[in-house]
Design a protein around this nucleic acid. Structure first.
Lengths: 163, 163
DNA sequence: TAATACTTGACTAAATTAGTCTGTTATGTA
DNA sequence: TACATAACAGACTAATTTAGTCAAGTATTA
């Protein structure tokens, strides 16, 4: 299966967006700070997510991204698919041409694994993750941390500009 | 998850070995021919499989590899693990240090997916695959194909060595 | 008009994978 | 004993992928 940090970052960022969706448009800079992801990298990912209709953007000051559809309609599979092409574990993509033009010995095995993984990722939505997991605690911690850093940053600037 | 052709090749080769285990030691050259895998590459994989106790080898003419344990005791997970380090989908390997020293927002999600995949791959053995899937038909086709090629090869040599 | 924030697309570095090659050692057979 | 076979070991390379960076825009709001 093709599950790299790209897909993981995308899901993480989308989850962040879902958690803060009520606060109006969220900038990528915010997400980058909170989730420790390069802003440049996020830009790449969100271009794809937008093209796949998962988020919508607004430019200019006060702008940012919001979910384009309900968090309960966004499955993890959809997010990964949007940035990562596929969640396929076979070599042939189900085409049965894994050995020359024919199916290889393990074709059925990988297809079956595919079904399992797809089922799991297609079933679970962002909304469910937020409810089910310890996501909210983690999120709180992240917000706290970011605001502390910003506070420290302000203090630092005041000191350095002071004398 | 780290599921590359390396892991797939290993499972395929082990399945080939399991299918032909009654024929005495099987050479890697045979497996290479039947499964379209580079002999050199197979050598690498089987070194690891041997070190993990899945196969045993005998050298010299008539030598080759055999399963070191019952096919019903060899799970796919074990094979993949032997050549491929892990079937882990998380970044932190369950260590919860995916964001700095703490767990990232999606930690639980990947852990859950991990459980699903591991459960599937840990449950299914080579023996089961042989029984369940269309493996035997595919295997027959492969043997037939190889013997045809060998036959054609012999014909070719006879022609070329004839004046 | 100035600052903000998305948009586009090219570019690079690092890591991983897949595959190749050279040579060595052990063993059965003629 | 010589020879062929086949495993064993490990270095090496090429190709691909991934992760990340950057520069130059455009649109929007205050």
């Amino acid at each position: 299966m093709k599950l790299t940090t790209k897909g993981r970052y995308a899901v993480t960022a989308m989850l962040d967006l879902a958690l803060h969706d009520t606060d109006g448009p969220i900038t990528l800079a915010d997400i980058a700070r909170r989730q420790d992801i390069s802003l440049y990298y996020l830009e790449q990912l969100f271009t794809k997510l937008r093209k796949h209709g998962l988020v919508e953007s607004s430019r200019g000051p006060g702008g940012g991204y919001r979910l384009a559809i309900l968090a309960s309609d966004i499955t993890v599979a959809r997010v990964i698919y949007s940035v990562d092409e596929s969640i396929d574990v076979t070599r042939c993509g189900g085409q049965q041409n894994c050995q020359g033009e024919l199916r290889c010995l393990t074709h059925d095995l990988w297809m079956e694994l595919n079904r399992h993984v797809s089922e799991f990722l297609n079933k679970i939505t962002l909304a469910e993750i937020i409810q089910r997991h310890m996501v909210r605690q983690v999120s709180k911690r992240q917000e706290l941390l970011v605001s502390q850093i910003q506070l420290a940053d302000i203090n630092l600037r005041m000191k350095s500009s002071a004398p």
